[in-house]
Amino acid sequence: MSPTPTTATPSDVTPARTGGGRTGGLRLTALHTRAQLLETVRVPIAVIGTVVFPTLTMLFFVVPQPFADDPAQATAATAQISLFAVMSVCLFTYGVGVAEDRALPWDSYLRTLPVGAGPRLAGRLLNGLAFALVSLVPLVVVAWLLTAAALPADRLVLTAGALAVAALPMLGLGLWIGYGMSTKAALAVAQVLLLPLAFGGGLFLPPQMFPGWLDAVSTWLPTRAGRDLVVSATTGADLPGTTWPVLAAWALLTAVLAVRAYRRDEGRRFR
């Protein structure tokens, strides 16, 4: 893919290099975000997959089921699939997307600019956030039209915060894949991890339907802890005592892996 000239220009670099302050950093972040969004939408199948796959999962796994007519169960199921949508963005936009960018000469050039990694990384995070929001819109519409799911207004902010916290281990995992692996390896690993983590975490079927051994294993997965947090935020269900320790441990572990992969990649290519 050819370099995108809108990512950075000499005039954009000057404020950050000369201490132009927060305005220069914000402008660079906006430019990186815009460039990465444009790069992504130029591959329509990537956008379609991000938007359609979670909604199709909702249509297949939730809408035809009898519990779709129960407000509490339908809301919990929608919360589970919403976390699956965010998880998909983390593994593919941050994982495979970062690996693909690293293979381009343009990424190597950006790392040589005297502006630091902050604006580039912030733009990447905002790009993923935008696609996560886009993937949730049709999902919420389907749940509203075809199920009895209902989210009280006073739980909207709480649910958004729960989704953000639940996504932290997946974000770290995606960045570890992206900065630590080649494009082919990243794609394979993301695909291998997506469905087992989603199914084992209770994102497709509620954990109450699991056999005892699977429920015990599921308790220690980041997706299960994230699922329990989001369901509790949306429905008011009791939060298991293992949720916060498991989420914190996985968030810390994947953050360490992501930082080490980034530093190793930077040291290998620019020493």
Rank of each mutant, 00 (worst) to 15 (best):
M1C: 10
T4M: 12
T4Y: 12
T6C: 10
G24V: 08
R27L: 08
L28E: 10
L28F: 07
L31E: 14
T33K: 04
R34M: 05
A35K: 00
L37I: 11
L38M: 03
T40W: 13
T40A: 08
T40P: 05
V41K: 00
I45K: 14
I48V: 12
T50G: 03
V51G: 07
P54T: 13
P54F: 12
T57N: 12
L59C: 08
F60T: 15
F67A: 05
F67C: 05
P71D: 06
A72Q: 13
A74L: 05
A74Q: 04
A74P: 06
T75A: 06
T75R: 09
A76S: 08
A76M: 06
T78Y: 11
T78W: 15
S82D: 07
V86T: 13
C90G: 09
Y94E: 12
V98D: 05
L104V: 14
L104P: 12
W106H: 14
S108K: 15
R111Q: 09
T112A: 13
V115D: 00
G116V: 05
G118D: 05
P119H: 01
P119V: 01
L121H: 13
G123K: 01
G123N: 00
R124C: 11
G128A: 13
A130I: 09
A132N: 12
L133N: 06
S135C: 06
L136P: 05
L136I: 07
L139N: 02
L146Y: 10
A148I: 00
A148G: 00
A150H: 15
A150D: 13
L151G: 02
D154V: 14
L158D: 09
T159C: 03
L163Q: 12
A164H: 03
A164D: 03
A167Y: 07
G172I: 08
L175H: 05
Y179E: 09
G180C: 04
G180F: 01
M181D: 07
T183F: 02
L187P: 09
A190F: 11
V192D: 08
L193D: 02
L195H: 12
L197C: 01
L197R: 00
G200W: 02
G201P: 01
F204Q: 09
L205V: 15
P206V: 04
P206Q: 03
G212N: 10
D215V: 15
P222C: 00
T223Y: 02
A225I: 07
A225N: 09
R227H: 11
V230P: 02
S232G: 03
A233C: 00
T234W: 03
T234C: 06
L239K: 13
L239S: 05
P240V: 05
T242R: 10
T242N: 12
T242H: 12
T243H: 03
L247H: 10
L252N: 04
L257S: 11
A258E: 08
R268H: 10
